[in-house]
């Protein structure tokens, strides 16, 4: 499906990477950003299922803690994978919309 070998992104992972695409953020800032751009409520538990996995897969990395909060930033391979996923999603959208238009015409 055009994904780099051995990787996958769930919907939640994709949202977190998109949130981090604009710069480092800590947990609550990621939650707030995702709520604003997608209207998705990502629970704290869900976020901390996703963050360790993304970190383990080398797609994000932790920065030094700011008090009790720890910001995360997207890595080069995370950015690359996000690019690939979004391009693929974009292609799917185009195909889907074109087919809908053809069917309605």
């Amino acid at each position: 499906m055009g994904r780099p070998a051995g990787t996958f992104l769930s919907d939640g992972s994709l949202l977190v990477l998109i949130a981090l695409a604009t710069g480092p953020k800590h947990g609550y800032a990621i939650q707030t950003d995702i709520r604003e751009f997608s209207a998705v409520e990502l629970g704290p538990g869900t976020l901390y299922v996703i963050l360790p996995r993304l970190e383990r897969d080398g797609l994000i990395e932790p920065l030094p803690a700011e008090g009790r909060r720890r910001p995360y930033r997207i890595t080069g391979s995370g950015r690359e994978l996000l690019h690939a996923e979004l391009n693929q999603a974009g292609s799917l959208c185009k195909v889907g919309l074109r087919r809908l238009e053809e069917a309605e015409a």
Partner: peptide, 26 residues
């Protein structure tokens, strides 16, 4: 590794106890 920051995130939630099931999942 994550305890401190997760606790901080829970504290940031407007109604932390609403998320207990979500925390169980985690």
């Amino acid at each position: 590794r994550y305890g401190e920051e997760f606790a901080a995130l829970l504290k940031d939630q407007p109604r932390p106890h609403r998320h207990w099931l979500n925390v169980v999942r985690c």
